[in-house]
Amino acid sequence: MLEIKNLHARIAEDGTEIIRGLNLSVKAGEVAAIMGPNGSGKSTLSYILSGREDYEVTEGDILYDGESILELDPAERAAKGIFLAFQYPVEIPGVATMQFLKVAMNEQRKARGEAELTTPDFMRRVKEAAAELKIAPEMLRRPLNVGFSGGEKKRAEILQMSLLEPKLCILDETDSGLDIDALKIVADGVNALRSPDRAVVVITHYQRLLDYIVPDTVHVLYKGQVIKSGDKTLAHELEANGYADIIGAAA
């Protein structure tokens, strides 16, 4: 489903290279975990996958369902089913959460040639998904992410994900700032989306989340490259021994 080939990318503004020859493939139905110390380029990779303009791909390619997505803008990628749950969800005063959800869902449907949702259908979907994630209706009446606590923001990201039903879900540090109960709710939300035609990329630097969202593969990202890949036992190894050994071995 996702194939990243020898990807090199830099910050557009100052030319600093962050991703330096990264290779990764994720199959449909797979849950892949990307781990790595702070500053290794995990968030940058997630932004590049979703098409943020601040980064420039200088070499390599990103194939999604066999086709390069480098020329697509973030909205086109989203309509094709790529979803990023942000590490830091963005506050937008003046944009009502419900209006945002409705526009996002309908624009994606339009781009795919599907009919727009009726208001009752939309309301029903939001109500159900919000209840699953224990999101209070009051929260949905506020402007987008404004005044949400850290945990509420993360849950709101998962709410968007379940409503938009993407094919490739990228979760960037969705576990940070969540207490154990919220973590379980979020993990249940993600697990509910697991399916043979969907792939999930979980970015985290703790093993904790992976106890609840059990990955099929684990990849260690360091200085913009995948330096080691393995199965879920690799995450346990990292938890026990830290990154030093692996980094040392790769150097």
């Binding site: 943020r52 909205a75 937008i92 003046g94 944009v95 526009v103 624009e107």
Partner: peptide, 29 residues
Amino acid sequence: DHTQLFYLMARGIPENKARAMLVNAFVAE
């Protein structure tokens, strides 16, 4: 705000529409 624009577009809202939403937000307040 480019970060806000990216966030809206990352949810599938085309650039023109996303810009209009942000402009609207500026006066909606």
